[in-house]
Structure formats: structure tokens, C-alpha cells
Design a binder for these strands. Structure first.
Lengths: 207, 207
DNA sequence: ATTGTCCTTCTACGGCTGTAGAAGGAGGAA
DNA sequence: TTCCTCCTTCTACAGCCGTAGAAGGACAAT
């Protein structure tokens, strides 16, 4: 693991645990077990440090996307005129739910840090460019909803991503964090599947 | 306007503009045009200051809720057995969209600060208690979906709130902030209405 | 008028933060 | 070897932050 990765991973962990305020050159050094001053030498200003974190988050997302590909791709190559069946939609909902559940457990740190950075990007637009949050997912969602037979697949795909993101955020920091089944369990995945499935149905039918 | 309100409002503005890192006793003084040290005297520790902000946010939400009541209440008192018509759902979607649009324009500062505090509440659970984000809205949504004829109104209501929140977040800081019609315009309201309407349909039918 | 209480304003201070630059050292080229 | 270059580690420093407490003043009760 390169020095760059060690530093940025420690930074991501800090942001997830303590928020943006906890992200300090020295704190990163301590967290990563590196000699004091290392982070400061690699990223002379705080801004470059944050940018590095964001870049790393985007990289990690890309890696995860490659590993955790949705079944959308199979469906995108359907012969024209042929649509997804209800069983297909069920399977899709289930796999989306599985990804969500993973983001709430294994990927929780990364998910929290991403939201923090997303909020940060409001005041620093240059971050937005790097952290193309969900761009790839959006592309998949559009293809998926086109295959599912939505009237306006672009719009429907965007709505889908937004809704699923809302679900995620709710479970992560909102009311769902307290009331919903604890992530990682089969119950949680079933609950998420239901939710995703109904969103999917809606957008297929109505948009 | 009480001193308490002047201070907390300035704090909220700072959090919205600069993020949690910009929230400092001295910065609040400067922003509110108060003598240096005032905020520090009112809220001796940073923690109490943040708590005060969160409390103020909750108060503002309550005020806004009273002013901006959804048509849910009328519908909640429908005679049993009678359901909402498609036209009712249209009207509901429109009024929800109007509220969302307001949160993206007039209430943008407050909305941004709320999300920042919500993220902060991950590390400080006591904040969660105060910032009962969307609790009242959730209650309304449940009643609404019960009236609309959803099979499991509690669950459906929660999903509804989560999805709508996702829509909001997307428009505020996500991809929607760049691609969607600019908030405050009739086009934006129309777009939001479409999205909300399809969510509503979905959850009514499927859950 | 005096006393006591509360609110406001100002000042102090230890600690942490961002950032720059010096010191040290490993290793490759000549 | 000697020299040069790059990477790492350490130190310095000005400025800001959180927090405590002193100083001043308004005002009501006595």
C-alpha cells in the first residue's frame, strides 16, 4: 500500500469518526502511525489534503463498482422491444439492496466520509468535479430503467438514484438509523429490497 | 429578536456557508455584529453552542411546519373506507414539491445547516434527540399514505420521507444541483412534482 | 444611598493548527 | 570516493480556538 493510500485512508477514517473538524495533518499522522509531519510534507496545505481524500474516495468507488456490478449490464443488451419481467425487477431490487446493505456495514466509514465531502463540495466546487458521486451508478440506473420500459429513462434513472440515496442516508444518519432493522442482517436486506422494489416499480410505471 | 436567536441564526449561516469548521465563537460574534466574546459568554463550550444551533433549527422547522402545512390533515380525517383519488394525489404531490422548492431557495441555508448537523449527530447521539429530523413530516406521511390506501402505511410513509429527502439532498448538493432546473422556477416545481408524484404512486400501490 | 445580583464586555492563556523550512540520510551517477 | 538529488523526519512560528475569569455597569430591593 502506497504512502498516499495510507495517508488518505487514515484521513477518511478520521472524517467518518470525527467529522471534517477532526481532519488535521497531525491527527492523520497519529491515526496512520506515521512520524509527525509526514502528512504535512505530502500535502502542504489543508486544501490539497482534502482533495486527496476526495480523489481516494472516487478511486475506491470505482474499485467497488467493478467488483460489485449490478445486473444492469445484462439487461442493457436486451434485444430492443423486449422488456424486463417482474422477476427480473425482483432480482434487480435484491442486488441493489445488497449493495446498500454493504455500504451501511463494511463501507460505512467510506459512506459517511463521502457525505461529509459532498457537503464540503458545496463551498468548494472544484471538489465536485473529482467526487462524481454516483455518476456511474446513474448511468447504470438509466440503462436499467430504459430496459425496464420506463417512458423517460434518463429522468427516471436520476430519480431512482436520488431515492435510493435518500434511503441510504436515512439509514445512515436519519431516523432509519434507529428504527430500521440493523444493517448486515437478512432482515435489513429484506427491508431494503422491499423499498427498492417499490421505487423501481413506481419509476417504471409512472415516469 | 432575542440574543439567543441572533447568535444561533448567525451560527446557522456560518455552518451553511463554511461548514462545521467555520463555526467558532469568534466567527459567530463577527457575523452577528456582536462584541467579541458575546457568544463565548452565552455558550461557554463549543458543544453547548452546537446544541443551541440544533435546537434553533428544530424550532424553525416547527414554525415552518405550522405555516406550511401539507394537505395531509384534510385527508387524514376521511371517513374510513374512502380513499384518495388520483386528483388528490396530484394535488398532494404539488404541495410537497412546493415545500421542497422553498427549502432549496428561501430555506437553503437552513437545509444545508441541518444536513451538516445531521452528520454531526452521528458522533454525538444526544443531538439526534433534539434534531428530530422530519419526525413530524413522517407522521404526516404515514397518515397520508394510510389515506391513500397503502397496505403498510407506516413503512410506506417512512420510505416516502426517505425518498423525498433523497430528492432534496440530490438537488442541494448532489448531481441534481447541476443538472436539474434551477430552484425557484416553475420548471423546477414541475420537475419536483413529477418526481414526488411517481414516488407517491409507487408507495401507494406496492407497499 | 448601599448592597447585591445579573448581564455584558474585555482580557488572558494554554493548546492546537496550518504551513514553511532546516536537518538528516539513502542511494545512484560520476 | 565525492557529489548531487530526492525522500523523510523534525523543528519553528505565527495565528486561531476553546474556555475561564476579571472588570464594568445596569437596575431592583432594601
Amino acid at each position: 500500500m502506497s504512502r498516499f493510500e495510507v495517508i488518505t485512508d487514515a484521513g477518511i477514517a478520521l472524517v467518518a469518526e470525527l467529522g471534517m473538524r477532526g481532519l488535521t495533518h497531525r491527527a492523520v499522522d497519529a491515526r496512520a502511525g506515521l512520524p509527525l509531519g509526514t502528512t504535512s510534507a505530502y500535502f502542504r496545505t489543508r486544501k490539497t489534503l482534502v482533495e486527496a481524500l476526495v480523489r481516494r474516495l472516487a478511486d475506491l468507488d470505482r474499485v467497488e463498482l467493478a467488483r460489485n456490478r449490478l445486473p444492469a449490464d445484462e439487461t442493457a443488451t436486451l434485444p430492443p422491444g423486449q422488456r424486463l419481467t417482474a422477476a427480473d425487477l425482483d432480482r434487480l431490487a435484491e442486488s441493489v439492496a445488497a449493495v446498500l446493505d454493504e455500504w451501511l456495514t463494511t463501507g460505512r466509514t467510506r459512506t459517511l466520509a463521502r457525505y461529509a465531502c459532498l457537503l464540503e463540495a458545496t463551498h468548494h466546487p472544484e471538489l465536485r468535479t473529482i467526487l462524481d458521486h454516483g455518476r456511474t451508478y446513474r448511468a447504470q440506473a438509466r440503462a436499467l430503467l430504459a430496459a425496464a420500459g420506463a417512458a423517460r429513462p434518463e429522468q427516471a434513472g436520476d430519480h431512482f438514484v436520488a431515492c435510493v440515496d435518500g434511503l441510504l442516508f436515512d439509514r445512515l444518519v436519519g431516523a432509519g438509523a434507529l428504527t430500521a432493522p440493523v444493517p448486515g442482517t437478512a432482515e435489513s436486506r429484506a427491508d431494503l429490497t422491499t423499498a427498492v422494489r417499490s421505487i423501481l416499480t413506481a419509476l417504471t410505471a409512472a415516469t
